[in-house]
Design a protein around this nucleic acid. Structure first.
Length: 418
RNA sequence: GUGGGUGUAGCCAAGUGGUUAAGGCACCGGAUUGUGGUUCCGGUAUGCGAGGGUUCAAAUCCCUUCAUCCACCCCA
């Protein structure tokens, strides 16, 4: 055998037995998006590098060390999209969707790329399904967005999820909190882990969700962002929670919830699962009221989220069902095989799923193959049947069998099988 | 980018310097010339992720490399 080429690091083939589940996820999401009048948008898989550098933030891990960036033949720097929001925002602005009446609700689905070390629940190419609502700062939109994600998970039968919510404030009040937090850290800097010490410089909020027990203990006494929110942000969150309460959705207010993208304002949230291992976030999102303007559009508040399809597949247990098969067509002898081929073709056109024998082997082998494929019915056409002008139709589960005249066989069999 | 684990057939694996690399599942053939998943018999690795080295002798020891898994950073 020739030397094999294997797939690139951090990528995965999605094989037929799992594709069934993917199709179910995609179809379910599409239905639920449709119910809240949310339209699909499809944007390119690569964009100008500058879009991500400006939109996501130069200092974030995604931009500083995880992007698949290359120079194309026209000497442009382009990047495989590491997340979906920036591209959708770009499309929203470029196509002047801000001029359309009312808030715009958009959803997307597709692969994202981040150059990271693979581990459980993390790949270099992975798929996200996400939604964005542009043009309203109402906390009702935050609540609706969260509920849409939960509706999708519920419709798929996902159990054991927890919604965590926090507010990161707005440019007015976030600065105050940041100052208070840095002051708190400076006092006990030596007691924190080395990661946290560098986090204080880069993104102090990150210290809050450090996993090291010593840091966690120290953080008990850290000031809470919830206490330094300005009046507007406090009110926004209160209304969001009231909307969630009104439909009986449970959530946990987590003042230490921080997210890795720079563009979030006010609401941030995550949907976490206990059955994902260390990467336990299934869905993450929040409000980003300044991003559209920062990307060159008119001031437009927005809120959105995305979930990882691979992580959802993990929770749902991976394997779906095998492809059902209505009928297996067995044949013996050359003339019979041709007639059987013709019947199979006709039955497929009439809507049945049909598989035929390719081996030309003995009848018992063909029957075993039909059973292995989990066929409901078996059609047998040998030289004897052909001579009599009929074929045999066998119900494999009931082990019953009857003759069907070849004349009009397609209609007769389609009626019996369906 | 950092740390640890693992690579033997399609899958699960035994083997820790010495005949011909166990076993199970799956697959293929036969017993059984045209009717069922059982049973029985037989077959399937010039090869142990790849490359180099040590040795009379290497899946086994050493070096390099690749892949994979788990964790950190961070995130879906």
């Amino acid at each position: 055998m020739e030397k094999q080429v294997s797939l690139p690091r951090g990528t995965k083939d999605i094989l037929p037995d799992e594709v069934q589940l993917w199709q179910r996820i995609e179809a379910t999401a599409a239905v639920i998006f449709g119910r809240c009048h949310c339209s699909e948008i499809r944007t390119p898989i690569f964009e100008a590098t500058e879009l991500y550098a400006r939109g996501i933030g130069e200092a974030t891990d995604i931009v500083s060390k995880e992007m698949y960036t290359f120079i194309d033949r026209g000497e442009r720097s382009v990047t495989l999209r590491p997340e979906g929001t920036a591209g959708v925002v770009r499309a929203f602005i470029q196509n002047k969707m801000f001029a359309l009446p009312g808030p715009q609700k958009l959803w997307y689905s597709g692969p994202m790329f981040r150059y990271e070390r693979p581990q459980a629940g993390r790949q270099r190419q992975f798929n996200q399904i996400g939604m964005e609502i542009f043009g309203t700062s109402s906390p009702k939109a935050d609540a609706e967005a969260i509920l849409v994600s939960l509706d999708i998970f519920e419709a798929l039968g996902v159990q054991g999820l927890e919604v965590q919510i926090n507010s990161l404030g707005c440019p007015d009040c976030r600065g105050n909190y940041r100052k208070a937090l840095v002051a708190f850290f400076e006092n006990k800097k030596e007691e924190y882990c080395s990661d946290c010490q560098s986090r204080v410089e880069l993104n102090p909020l990150r210290v809050l969700d450090c996993k090291v027990p010593a840091c966690k203990a120290l953080n008990q006494d850290a000031p809470s962002i919830q206490e330094t929110l300005c009046e507007g942000c406090r009110e926004h969150q209160k209304e969001l929670l009231a909307f969630l309460d009104s439909v009986g959705t449970s959530y946990r207010l987590n003042p230490k919830l921080v997210r890795g993208l720079d563009y979030y304002t006010r609401t941030v949230f995550e949907v976490v699962s206990g059955s994902l291992g260390s990467q336990n976030t299934l869905c993450g999102g929040g409000r980003y009221d300044n991003l559209v303007e920062e990307c060159g559009g008119p001031p437009t508040p927005a809120v959105g989220w995305s979930f990882g399809v691979e992580r959802l597949v993990m929770i749902l247990g991976g394997k779906g069902n095998v492809l059902p098969l209505d009928l297996f067509v067995a044949s013996l002898g050359e003339a019979a095989e041709r007639k059987a081929f013709e019947l199979a073709h006709g039955l497929r056109k009439s809507g049945l799923s049909v598989e035929t024998d390719f081996s030309g082997g003995k009848l018992d082998k063909q029957i075993k193959q039909a059973i292995r494929l989990n066929a409901k019915f078996l059609l047998i056409l040998g030289e004897d049947e052909l001579a009599r002008g009929e074929c045999l139709l066998k119900n494999l589960s009931e082990r019953s069998q009857g003759a069907v005249p070849l004349e009009g066989a397609v209609e007769a069999i389609a009626g019996l099988v369906k």
